[in-house]
């Protein structure tokens, strides 16, 4: 009797353990995996860079990763790449492992803003310079890292607003703007809203009549735009915090029987391939670039930092803007 009851229980346990193993493998596998490969180490003539990436959560991020990998190869820098799968603990683990391997420079895109002081202090004590890419940390002690290389999201918002100010310069009555925000509370959403609002304040005719989050996704952009179109029948301009939400909104505008780009002018940020295609087709009017290809700039900084040269605390990614003509020209060679 006893054996008969314990056997299924054992089976259950084994299955649970197997499930737990699968979960553990999924959670932690990527964290250390890339970082444990034996590198050339310090002392050799080739520089070693330990790079911890946020994850692979978007096309933008994938392009960012590829740019770093390609640029490292081109610059002859040994790259120790580690994917944090959007978990801070994986990233801290990766950075500690970089310190143990005594890489020459550590670079990373922080998953979140806070909680980095301890591990950055460890890097400082080990005399390994740290470069932040794409996202900042909120440490008050700025000596913990050498420099921060990334986009200026406020400036992106300003550029978007500037185009609208110039486009409506003729002045023919009020212009009704709706805004699709990124994920609530995220730095790009807050900053792109701020920069845009600040710039369009120059012209009192420009008014944001509705602003809602579309979570940076196409689905979100479409659903919110559908609701906007019904509540506000007189929309003139759409400002979306990224291309994807703009693309979703285009579907909603077309379903409402209006012509995107003509009836409703559309401004977005990012300049990913699909967005550029829509811009070339005239469905989007203007795109402010948010460049993920910061690999070459990063390698430049790595070399300078490793050589002990002074670098500025803040380096802004080289970025441009596109109108329809520029999009048509840039589209064939667009990498992401």
């Amino acid at each position: 009797m006893r054996t008969r009851t314990t056997l299924p229980a054992l089976g259950k346990l084994a299955a649970l353990a197997a499930a737990a193993l699968v979960l553990a493998a999924c959670g932690g596998g990527g964290g250390g995996g890339g970082a444990t490969a034996p590198g050339a180490g310090a002392g050799g003539e080739a520089l070693t860079l330990g790079f911890s990436q946020v994850g692979a959560e978007s096309g933008w991020r994938t392009a960012n990763t590829k740019s770093v990998q390609d640029a490292a190869g081109a610059a002859g820098i040994e790259l120790q790449f580690s994917d944090a799968q959007q978990k801070q603990e994986n990233q801290i683990k990766a950075i500690r492992s970089f310190i143990q391997q005594r890489v020459d420079v550590i670079a990373f895109s922080p998953v979140v803003e806070s909680g980095w002081d301890t591990v950055l202090m460890e890097a400082k004590r080990a005399n390994i310079p740290v470069i932040l890419t794409d996202r900042a940390v909120d440490s008050t002690d700025t000596t913990l890292y050498k420099t921060f290389l990334g986009s200026d999201f406020v400036e992106e918002g300003r550029k978007a607003g500037q185009w609208l100010v110039e486009d409506t310069a003729g002045g023919s009555g009020p212009v009704n703007i709706v805004e699709l925000q990124g994920t609530t509370g995220s730095a790009p959403a807050i900053d792109r809203q701020e920069g845009f609002a600040e710039t369009i304040a120059q012209n009192p005719d420009l008014k944001v009549i509705a602003s809602q989050t579309g979570d940076f996704t196409r689905s979100g952009g479409r659903q919110v735009m559908e609701a906007f179109l019904k509540t506000h029948p007189d929309i003139d301009v759409l400002y979306a915090h990224n291309d994807d939400m703009g693309l979703g909104a285009i579907e909603a505008i077309e379903a409402a029987g209006k012509v995107p780009g003509t009836d409703i002018k559309i401004i977005t940020v990012d300049a990913v391939k699909d967005g550029m295609q829509a811009l070339a087709d005239g469905k989007i009017n203007y795109i402010v670039e948010c460049n993920p290809l910061l690999g070459p700039q990063l390698m430049d900084l790595v070399k300078k930092v490793a050589a002990g040269e002074e670098v500025p605390q803040r380096v802004v990614t080289e970025e441009t803007t596109f109108d329809t003509a520029a999009a048509k020209a840039a589209l064939p060679s667009r990498q992401y």
Partner: peptide, 30 residues
């Protein structure tokens, strides 16, 4: 196997999104 449903389906919930990302190569497929 008689595994608790919340655990059994958690396996797919966690691993499955990775599978989807693998299929799309991390990109949005238009």
């Amino acid at each position: 196997l008689g595994i608790q449903p919340i655990i059994a389906t958690l396996v797919l919930m966690t691993a499955g999104r990775g599978l989807a990302q693998l299929v799309t190569d991390g990109q949005i497929i238009t």
